[in-house]
Amino acid sequence: MALDTPAINTVPLGDERLGELLVEGVSKWFRTRRDNVHALDDVSLHVRPGEFVSLVGPSGCGKSTLLDIVAGLTRPDAGRVEADGVPVTGPERHRLVMFQESALFPWLDALGNVLFGLKLVPDLGRRQRVETAMEHLRLVKLERFARANVHELSGGMRQRVALARALAPDPRVLLMDEPFSALDALTREQLYDDLQEIWRTRRKTILLVTHNVREAVCLADRVVLFSPHPGQLREVFDIPLPRPRDINSAELSGYASRVTAALKSYYTRDAML
């Protein structure tokens, strides 16, 4: 559905058109002693370079599993995943993940966390690394907190550092696993603005997993709807709203309610089974 229509309202890209994702017929089962959970069932998805795609669905619909598979942290049982035409066989620096609760390392300060990934980038001098790290802390407006310890930062600040850490090594794809779910509404809305600005200027391909429909609509070019048991891709919604978007605007609410209605239809159908 509408997989091949060009994205609307995207800034023209430069020469670099990297960050393409191709998911084809991916299935995944989780076998436990008692159960054999069908987490993903024949999921296919094509994400264009620089596109922002949100994956929404109730818990257990396999959206986080799909993100893990694209990240290379989990292998699919069937199907294939390609990033820029290369099969995904494991984690790679071109696809970085921003996790649910901040996965910042408590033994490093904010700057140390941002430097962690940069130190694993080949051919980067020490000075360059520190400059790049500081530049990304500035990008998330936390340069004053470079030397702060993780526990001294608020939840929102931690996720900002996590964002800086994921962006600093300049990945082609940013994978976000419910990065805002633990934050309060005000902090979240501020981060939506910041993320939109960063996406506008940096043009990463972004795959965002969320259970918040408004958030998905506010940020994405396309919203992909999943339903659980087994995890299946049900519908794809194009969101042709101009940017920057305000999560509280009426047009956005219109799109969000359409997605929510679709979500509910699958949810109640499954709940009655």
Binding site: P91, L96, F99, A103, F105, F116, L120
Partner: peptide, 24 residues
Amino acid sequence: VYARAARTMGSAGFHRWTRVILPA
């Protein structure tokens, strides 16, 4: 989640032991 985050950033083998597992 520490180990997973480190893996995505390219930490493996000896680096993973000394820079992630030990400090964590």
